[in-house]
Design a protein around this nucleic acid. Structure first.
Lengths: 124, 124
DNA sequence: ATTAATACATACTTTAGGGTAAGTACTTGT
DNA sequence: ACAAGTACTTACCCTAAAGTATGTATTAAT
């Protein structure tokens, strides 16, 4: 999808980090500014490609599809396509994807707590 | 520290994502291949700069210091410097940093579960 | 014949982050 | 006089990820 130079130092280090560090592994899966947002929109119900597009207007189609393919390849979500014209494609969270929800929720909770603190400190 | 072009679309989108999405906010704080590893090394005890360097040989000094400064600025860790020569500087997790540990642990747990599944699928 | 609708694909550009390499300040020991 | 140790700093380069813009396939409706 995206050309990658296996030999680059950055790739070597990434690989090392992925092997050493399960946290990095998880962040790889949900990293990228839009992935958590996509997951959020799929957290309650499956959605069509075009629905996602409408729900997240700022994302470009290239990046949306790229993330969807990656999330699918990583086993976080399931793509279902009806062979009709015009196409009808839906995306939904897989079991693995659903298991990620509490993790994501914990991250969000920490964010709110931490943000509050920072605001308090800043306004002293 | 690193020059940033506020006007770029990527920065605009990042800002949007940060405002919309607390998960992105959290990932910002612990993103970068080395940050979770640094946090891990500080999870049990405070460490000197040089100890961190030895503990994570693959990281360059520039990136190490850069991440440490960022983590400090984000309120995740506390720097203490004794005014002696040669310098003696230690880093330890702040309260916010410590509160992140269970979150990080949840991410790691998910990684192990998810990795296993993928291995099983791959070896069928 | 052309337009509309959907779900992509692809060539090209920009940029933020990470990597390389080298230098700095300050004092103690030789 | 200078080397050693510690904790940085800075100038420059490279790459992966994100953005821009445009194109494609298929069929039904007009």
């Amino acid at each position: 999808m995206t050309a990658i130079k296996e030999s680059s130092t950055i790739q070597q280090n990434k690989k090392t980090a992925l092997e050493l560090c399960p946290v990095t592994f998880t962040m790889e899966k949900i990293g990228g500014y839009w992935k958590p947002i996509i997951i959020y929109h799929l957290s309650t119900e499956s959605k069509r490609y075009s629905e996602l597009k409408k729900a997240i207007p700022a994302i470009t189609e290239k990046v949306l599809i790229q993330h969807l393919k990656q999330l699918e390849a990583d086993g976080l979500l399931i793509r279902e396509a009806k062979t009709v014209v015009p196409p009808f494609v839906t995306y939904q969270l897989s079991e693995s994807g659903k298991k990620l929800l509490p993790v994501i929720h914990a991250m969000a909770t920490w964010a709110f707590e931490h943000q509050e603190k920072h605001i308090n400190v800043a306004s002293e």
